[in-house]
Amino acid sequence: MKPFLSVENMTQRYPDGQGGELTVFEDATFGVEKGEFVVILGHSGCGKSTIMNILAGLSDPTSGVVIMDGTEVKGPSLDRGVVFQNYSLLPWLSTLKNVTFGVSARHPEWSRAQVIEHSTKYLAMVGLEGDVIHRKPSQLSGGMRQRVSIARAFANHPKLLLLDEPFGALDALTRGTIQDELLKIWSGTEQTVFMITHDIDEAILLADRILLMTNGPYARVAESVEITIPRPRNRTEIIEHPNYYAIRNHLVTFLGKRSKEMAGQKTGEGSNRPTPVRIDTTEPEEPENAPPALRAVNE
């Protein structure tokens, strides 16, 4: 059975400006299950944002298809909500109106009062209440703006929520608070989320599964690492979980070393499926200083 979101043989090539072609990634194939929180990690330039734009329907791949819920993704849709890195709030609208803008696009049949009530509820969920919601985005801090953007996306109940480095422009402390808020709002829904990030700790905190990308050109989604830390997670508690550093070391090694070694390799024919990786030190007994158990499970 096909997963909820299925990316099949997706290839992106750009003209390199000298008559040739630059292949960003080739035959990328992966899936996301319904209700799953999937994070994609990789260095800049490996095509993460391109994948995001294709999933959002804002651009088309050179070849390959994206199938969501049985239908092919063609163009942008309200079924796929996007939170952009730079918030993308409309600066001439108040905070509340930025959210009602989305809600009334999603539910054109709703009354004005209904739209406002729904929007206010979602703004309150990200901690924006009272006078603040009548301010313009320029009067809000970066963290507050990104909260508005998250509220706008969640309020629309998209089938798939795409987060494009949503916390990239925020300072570490604010990032932590909003990550917690994102987890809180997400755990109350069955929302399927696909997120891009650079931040390893953020990825471990949020994700059910992390897709690791090698460096470009010919980047590929090389591994799919399952995060074997039970939910609900908490930033301060997960670091004490025995799997935390095992997973973290695996990710760091991949990004620091293996992503470079694997870069630029043309993999030949067929689909590039990520290798599933499951790291769980809690099952077998491991001595203290042993290297993390690393088992590649081929399905």
């Binding site: 804002l58 309200l78 796929r80 996007v82 993308s88 409309l90």
Partner: peptide, 19 residues
Amino acid sequence: DWVNVARTHELNPLKTAFT
């Protein structure tokens, strides 16, 4: 980005132009 916001909210061209 703002045009993309309109696109991801499926606004028609007229509505995009005005809003």
